[in-house]
Each structure stands twice: as C-alpha cells, then as structure tokens.
Write a protein that binds this DNA or RNA. Sequence first.
DNA 1: ATGTCC
Length: 476
Amino acid sequence: MDTGQLIQRDETCWEIPKKGAMRVPALIYADASLIRDMDQKVYEQITNVATLPGIVDAAYAMPDAHWGYGFPIGGVAAFDPDQGGVISAGGVGFDISCGVRTLHTGLTIRDILEQKHRLADELSRAIPAGVGSRGKISLNHNEMIAMLNGGAQWAVDRGFGEAEDLERTEEQGCMKGADPSEVSAKARERQHDEMGTLGSGNHYLEVQRVTEIYDQTIAARFGLAIDDIVITIHCGSRGLGHQIGTEFLKDMAVSASQYKIALPDRELACAPINSPLGKRYLGAMRAGINCALANRQILTHLTRQAVASIFPGARLDLFYDVSHNTCKVERHKVNGQMKELFIHRKGATRAYGPGHPELPTAFKDVGQPVLIGGSMGTCSYVLCGAKDNERRAYSSSCHGAGRAMSRHQATKQWRGRELVDDLARQGILIRSPSLRGIAEEAPLAYKDVSAVVDAADKAGLSRKVARLEPVICIKG
DNA sequence: ATGTCC
C-alpha cells in the first residue's frame, strides 16, 4: 500500500480521510513496514466498508489485514441499528466463528521430549483433519437443533469436556439468540458428520512450548511459564458455516436494492439489522457460532483422550477460547452515551481490556486473553486486551499472521514434502493428510507474525504476554 | 474458509 494516500496519526495509526461516499474515515493500525507490504485491496475494501449505512466512528483494519471477500480479513466495523445500520455476511466471513482455543497441559517440554513422535501419531489418529474430514459423531435432526442452540454447552452436556471449560469460552460457550430454523436443510446436512473435525486450510491443532514471557504478572495470572506445553486448536464451523455464508450472501446481494443500499462492491452485500433478512441472518449466524463452539469443544475432548493415552495424569484445563469471525452485539460509548452496536470482526479478535464486566472472574482485573496463531512452523503469541482499547477499534485486536501470498502462488513456490522435512530438522513434527495443503501453508506465504503483534502492542490494541513455539502440528 | 465447481 502506498503510504502517500494515508494521513499518519501516530507511529501505528494511519487514516484514510472521509471522501466521496464514505460516511466515516477508515483507520489502519500497523507500522510503516506492514503498511508498505499491505495489499492495496485493503485500502479499497475498508474505504468501501466506510460507505455502508449506519457505520459508527470508522472502518478499521488490524495490522494483519489482507484482501478478503468484500470486507478485508483483519477488518472491524461497528453498526448502529437505530441509524439504519447493516449486517453483512461478508463482514463476518464464510467460516463463521472460526477461532482459537488454547489448553494448558501441566506438562513441560522435558516431560514430552521423548514421547514427541508417539504424541504426534496419537493426535493425528484422534483428530480428523483435511478437506471433507468426517468424525465419529453424527447428529440426528433433534440433536443438530440442540447443538445449534446450545454450542459448547450442548457438547459439555453430552459428555464432551467439563463445565469449567464454559467459563473460559466467549459467551460461556453458548451464543444466545441462535435460530436453527434459519439454518437450511443443506447446511445441516453438510454438518451431519463433521462435528469434531478440524477441516483444512489454515486450521490446525498445535502442541506448543512457551519460549518467552513479556509480562510476568499477566503470564502468571494466565498460568503460563517458560517451557510449559500448551495445545492450541484453530478451527471453525466447517461446512455448516460456509453454507450459511454462501446462502445469505446471495440473498443479501439480491435484496440490497430493495433496501436502497448502494453497494460499491457486490461482495459487500448486507441487509439492515432491523430488516427481516438481517434478523434471519443474525439467527443463522448465531447458530453457526454455536456450531463452531461445539466443534472446538468436541475437539478438546478428543485431544484430552489422545494425550491421556500417553500421559495418564495430565490435566488439560482450558485456558481460553476466542472467535475471530463474528458479529456481536456489544455496549460501547458513542458520543458519550452507551449504545448497543453490532460489531463485525472478520479475522479480528475481541480483546476486552481490564475491568470489562463480561470477562470471566479469573481475568477480570487483567483483561481478556488474546490468542494469536502464527503460520505453521513459526511462533504464536498470547496477548491481553489493553486498557482503554475501546476507543481504538471497539476492543479488537489482530488474529494471526495474515497471508502475504495466495495459496496458488505458494504451491508454485514450495513442495509440501520439503517443508515437512525442513521443519522436522528444526524439531517440529507435522502430520497432515495433504502435502499440497502444507505447501499452501508455507511459513513464508504469511506475514511476519512477530511484526504484526508488535504493531498491535504498540498501537495499544492488546499487550504482548507470551510467545509460543510449535513442537507438533496437526494440519488439515 | 469450502463436499477447493451445481
């Protein structure tokens, strides 16, 4: 991106001033180097988002922003229903409530070193991964509806995990207001035997080692210390979420003119929050969120079983679960008054600062854990919602490294087998059904995650707490 | 992201 088109507000905040059809300005949080490498499409896309009805304050892009469908991935936008605000399927993303959860293991790197290969094989056997992966659980109609209403709470009720897990999951594991009757038969059919599966693309299950602590006090509160082993699961709502996205995107594109919404890009298709279509999508999307929460909950149970077969005494307590493709109703201050806004976060993580009433007791005084996945073979980070970050991007932070190169380009540049061998030499074990998938996910096809989190920290979105490095990676 | 094209 050409920095000449932007007004630099400070070291990590860049403004696209309001012009043309824009209702508000757009703000990008990144350092100069990330901005220079950022896709020019991000400029176009957040400029377009800023034209949508009812948008409040600004359209935001996180430091990891890149070209997405309509909205950039790494985009945040808040809409006011009382000002004609809209909800957009492309503003949530196809993989509804894709997210990350990290489990403590109580083990250290010394405990697992000699069992590394066994653990990799066991996890690979226990976790269904890859395109169209299927699980052992299949849901009949009534169970499907119960799952879409109950999310991770439904999963815990069925014996997948423990009640304590729910306290450490956004929405206590259950998104209220889901309407399974708005989830089509086709979407439900696609999910019939996909519960408890990882899927493909950038989804993974990773065994990680804590290698650096940046904030001793918060790390201690988060239960993280050097050489601890944690396990991180990154996945979403599988075929069901994708089907919901596909169907509503089409409906929203068709009905935009009926709602008198001028779309600068068809991919920005949306509907007023208070319209019948907007309400239908909200109900379906919330059911999709529950599907993703239930899916990660079942995967947690499968992970616990796999780890227990090698380390019988290990306790895999949930550290935290965050979603990064959502639209949520939150109370925020607008012109000095508290308002209920619909916050779209696409490839962006909620990052409540210290003291937020919705935080679990364990984190209330320090802030929300923010889990940032790196690319395969590179590091990941744990951050913490920063004080006063509400006024920056409605308490949001980045979600990962962000792609720097297309999947197609990556497959031309790398061979899966060579990447697996290279990483094995670095002591990182990869298990995946797809060598092509590995090539698409080559570490160098992503932005430098360390630069991304440094920018998020400097911008005051969230604070660095700990760095994690991969030991084993189960890839979809 | 996605039964990587109904």
